[in-house]
């Protein structure tokens, strides 16, 4: 039964990490207050696409009808110098006056209010033992940690936030940004404004927020999430093999009993039902034990490895439970076939 529990736990972990990563990767985009995202032409997401726009795009956007406000964002994969060595972060420069493009949630400390301040992701801060008030070295300068954010963990890398002025100083130029967040005036249609931008500006991509979230989710799903899903599927296959072996061994151990039942007139469905009931009972006990262990182990895992952020929901647990019970039913196929090779004649001396 522990094998079943282990496989169920593995699936619960992977699905919760899948959800956590999926949420952490796109929550920043989902919770942004932008109506439209404007990026370099052919760039479709901010996770694995590079986008560089001239500041001129911003000036042009400001002049267009139906646009109430724009806010520049810069993204830079960078290294900060920590005591344990250089560590990568996804450095995001945003306009701290409007707050647009900043961290979705602050769990500790404050938003940025000046230059050379930084907000770190909660998992990143925990992993590297950094707290609000600390200073971290970055390319010869130092940044004050003023806040800790949540929903900014992409599993392989974490967001960190600075204001746009600091970002320009780091870049060494004020001529470029990564993208613009656009708010539409009341009474204007988002699609119409997006189409206007596309027709008036060459070499830009324009997405409404919903489409942009989908683009980023798709990008994440085509990367690490596929790997997690593959391991979860392997866990399911291992579970099926374990269950099948347990049930087959049980059939062989109780061969005589099944032969007796056949001899005294047991219908085929009765014995088949016994195997299925055994499979489901094993699965249910395995699931219950896995559920009991899941949350404590997930918390432990998050302490040991903070960047692994799980997101557990009742729906996930229900779906995994249904899957495990489904797998248990499939697993009973081989033992049921073994039953067919047990003959009532075996009970006669």
């Amino acid at each position: 039964m522990f094998g079943i529990t282990f496989c169920t736990l593995l699936m619960l972990f992977l699905v919760s990490i899948y959800e956590g990563v999926s949420d952490g990767s796109v929550r920043y985009v989902r919770e942004s207050e932008a109506d439209l995202w404007v990026l370099q032409g052919h760039a479709s997401n901010i996770l694995r696409n590079t986008s560089i726009l001239s500041r001129r795009v911003g000036y042009d956007l400001k002049r267009m009808e139906g646009i109430r406000a724009i806010s520049p964002i810069t993204f830079l994969l960078a290294s900060v110098d920590l005591p344990k060595g250089p560590t990568s972060i996804y450095l995001t420069g945003y306009d701290d006056k409007t707050g647009m493009g900043g961290p979705p949630t602050i769990v500790e400390g404050d938003m940025i209010s000046g230059n050379y301040q930084i907000i770190l992701d909660v998992a990143f801060a925990a992993k590297h033992d950094i707290a609000v008030g600390d200073r971290i070295a970055f390319q010869g300068d130092s940044l004050d940690v003023v806040g800790i954010s949540d929903g900014t963990n992409m599993f392989v890398i974490q967001y960190a936030f600075i204001n746009i002025i600091t970002a320009y100083k780091i870049y060494g130029t004020t001529e470029f940004v990564s993208c613009y967040l656009v708010n539409i005036d009341e009474g204007y249609d988002i699609d119409q404004v997006a189409n206007n931008i596309r027709s008036e500006m060459k070499d830009v991509s324009v997405y409404d927020k919903e489409t942009f979230v989908e683009n980023n989710v798709r990008e994440m799903e085509s990367g690490i999430l596929n790997l997690l899903l593959s391991i979860a599927i392997i866990g399911g296959i291992v579970l099926a093999v374990i269950l099948s072996l347990i049930l087959t061994v049980s059939v062989l151990e109780h061969r005589k009993e099944y032969a007796i039942m056949k001899a005294i007139g047991s219908p085929r469905f009765y014995i088949t039902g016994l195997i299925i009931i055994q499979a489901v009972i094993l699965a249910v006990f395995g699931i219950l034990l896995a559920i009991a262990l899941f949350l404590p182990l997930l918390s432990l895992l998050e302490i040991i490895s903070p960047e692994i952020t799980g997101k557990a929901t009742i729906m996930q647990v229900c779906l995994i439970s249904i899957c495990v019970i489904g797998i248990s039913l499939i697993s009973s196929f081989i033992p049921i076939q073994k039953i067919r090779n047990i003959y009532p004649l075996e009970v006669f001396s």
Partner: peptide, 13 residues
């Protein structure tokens, strides 16, 4: 199978 269940009783050594 039905016959063995309802119309034949078995006693084994």
């Amino acid at each position: 199978q039905r016959l063995r269940a309802s119309s034949i009783g078995f006693v084994f050594q």
